[in-house]
């Protein structure tokens, strides 16, 4: 699997935003939709999320695979948790008569159940939508400065940049190591026994880790030798909030505040037609 970060939404509306916005907005959205029960309310939020996502201009064919994966996975989770088993705490406030019992599990399914699982699905999918721009619309080199400007320690912030520097090379040396072991007759085990399988991964996991660590010693030396480690460093990339950025943040902050109060006032219940 390709691990090098992809930068897709470069010059879209979101692509032009200050990267901090792309990081903060999903957090606000998270606060907003957490624990929402009413499917109509959730639908509203989901539409907002969709608009936000579309404004990122991420080419569909690039992320088709990701979406296919997310959607199936989330549908299954929600299905299993709500419709097939009663894994979810559904407020009793809107007691609805069971429509039918689920075959196999015999779990009673009511309109409330369906409505609530709808809410859940929408919540997860919309959260994924809010997450995508973080991955695809922030230029690889910009993450470090973004965190630094959000108050993270400058050095740790640089660590984020460094992580993305190491990703491709780590993936490459993993391939090298797998090759090196294959010429020694190493092969993936056919066994189902998890312990055996874990053991059988040692020839890959251990050399990759050890070599990366040995190299890291040199890398940290090289960084010291180029004066890394002061409390403050210059970042070539300048970040500045524009008016649009403020508006966007303010909008989502307001949404979060509104929905939180709405929930606190307890006005939010599972919707049953």
């Amino acid at each position: 699997m390709d691990v090098t970060p992809r930068y897709l939404g470069g010059d879209s509306f979101l692509g032009r935003r200050d990267p901090r916005v792309l990081l903060l907005v999903p957090v606000l959205y998270l606060v907003a939709v957490a624990r929402i029960d009413d499917v109509r309310m959730m639908l509203g939020c989901a539409l907002l999320a969709l608009t936000y996502y579309l404004s990122a201009g991420i080419p569909w064919r690039e992320v088709r695979a990701n979406w296919a994966f997310v959607l199936t996975l989330m549908t299954i989770t929600v299905g299993v948790n709500s419709v097939f088993t009663d894994a979810l705490q559904i407020e009793t406030t809107a007691e609805a008569p069971p429509l039918f019992d689920m075959p196999l599990t015999g779990n009673p399914v009511s309109v409330a159940t369906l409505s609530y699982s709808g809410t859940l699905l929408l919540r997860f999918v919309s959260m994924a939508m809010m997450g995508f721009p973080v991955a695809f619309c922030i230029a690889p080199g910009d993450l470090g400065i973004t965190f630094a400007r959000l108050g993270v320690s400058q050095r740790l912030a640089y660590g984020v940049d460094l992580t993305f520097r190491f990703l491709p090379s780590t993936a490459a040396s993993m391939q090298e190591i797998i090759d090196a072991q294959r010429v020694r007759g190493y092969d993936h085990p056919r066994t189902g026994n998890p312990v055996r399988r874990l053991k059988s991964l040692k020839p890959v996991v251990i050399p990759l880790t050890v070599n990366s660590l040995i190299d890291a010693e040199d890398t940290s030396n090289a960084m010291d030798l180029r004066a890394f480690g002061a409390k403050h460093r210059t970042w070539m990339r300048e970040l500045a909030f524009g008016r649009t950025d403020y508006l966007l943040l303010a909008g989502f902050a307001a949404l979060a505040a509104a929905l939180v109060t709405y929930k606190i006032l307890g006005a939010d219940v599972v919707w049953v037609p």
Partner: peptide, 28 residues
Amino acid sequence: EISSRVVVFAAVGAALYAVLGLISFTIP
């Protein structure tokens, strides 16, 4: 202390975890 050593090892660790983390299997 967040020395450059810690930073580098943290980054290496994250990269390793990300790459190797893609290998996973389900217990039958």
